[in-house]
Amino acid sequence: MSLDEAIRLRDPSRLPSRRDEDWRWTDLRGLLRTVPEPSQRLEPGELGVGPFDGLEGEAILVANGAGPEDLRIVADESRTVILRNVSRGDGAHASRLRIEVAAGGRLTLLESHEGGGAGLSLLGIDLSLGEGASCERLVLSDLDPESVAVVELDVRLSARTRFAQTLMTTGARRQRLETRVRHPGQGAEVRLDGAYVLRDRRHADLTTSVRHEGPDGRTEQLTRGIVDDQARAVFQGRITVQEGADGADARMAHNALILSDRAEVDARPELEIYADDVACAHGATVGALDEDVLFYMRQRGLPEAEARSLLAASFLGEVLDRVEAPVPVEYLRAWLAARLDAGI
C-alpha cells in the first residue's frame, strides 16, 4: 500500500492525499511534504509503562516499528495478548504483524498506541480467524500531539467466527485507525465500536469497511465521540452487502458531540446493498450538549464543568458497556474520564 511504500522509499508522492477519495479528510501528503528519516532503534529501558500493564496476558512489543511479525493461536487455545505499539522520536517507520487464530481459538487482543513523538508511523495487522474462532480487540490510543500515526487492520473471518473491537482514542496531529473486514456471513458476527475524545488541534479518523460476501452475517457498529477546541474527527463507515449475501443484518451508528465552534466532525456512513433480503440501518447525529439539560444540572448544584463532563462521560459510556474483553469497565471509564476532565 502507498503509505508503506512512502515510508520505505522515503517518497512523499506516495503518501495518501486528499485526492484519494478515502483519505480526503486525512491528507498526509499535504501535511508532511517530506517523509522523515527512518526511526532509530528503541531500547526497552525507554518504554515506560503501558495502559494494560498489570493485567494478565502475554506481552508483545512493537518499538519504533521493530517487533515480531507473526502470532499464532493454535486450535481451541484461548489467549490474551497485550500488544504495545510504542514510537519515540521524529523518524518514520512501518511494520506489519500477521495474526492467525486457528479453528476454535480465542484471542483477546489488548492493544495500545503510545508516544509517537513528532514522527510518522504505520502499523499494519493482518488477522485471520479459522472456523468458530473469536477475537476481541480493545485499543487504547493516547499519542503525542505532534505525531502522525496510522494503524490498519485487515480481518478475514470464517464461518461462525466472531470479531469484536472497541477503539478508544485521543487522536494525534493526524491519526487514522482503519479496519477492513471480509465477512463471509455463515453465522459470523462482527462488532466494530469506537469512542474518541479530541481536543486542542488533534485529529482522529476512524474508518471501517465491512464486505458481506456470503449469506447470514451480522455486523453492528457504534461509534461515539466528543470534539472540542479546534479538533477534528472523521468517521467513515462503509458496509457493503454483495449479491447473494442475503440474510445480512447490519447496523451502524455514529454520534458526535461538538463542544466548540471551531471543532469539526466529518462523517460518511455508507451502506451499499446488492442483495435483496437484508436488514440494514445506519444513523448519524452530530450535536452539542443540551443547554437546557446543563441548566437543570446546575440548578441542582453541579458546577458547569462538572455537569459537562458528567454528560460527556455518560454519552461515551454506552460504548464501554459493550466491551467484552476482561478489562474492568471502571478502568476504561477512568481512562476516558481523565481525558474528559481536562477542561470540557
Binding site: D290, D292, V293, Y296, M297, Q299, L310, L311, A313, S314, F315, G317, E318
Partner: peptide, 12 residues
C-alpha cells in the same frame, strides 16, 4: 426549582 418540565439526563 421543581421544574414544570423536568429534563431527562441520558446515561446518568
Amino acid at each position: 426549582l421543581s421544574f414544570q418540565y423536568p429534563l431527562e439526563i441520558p446515561g446518568v
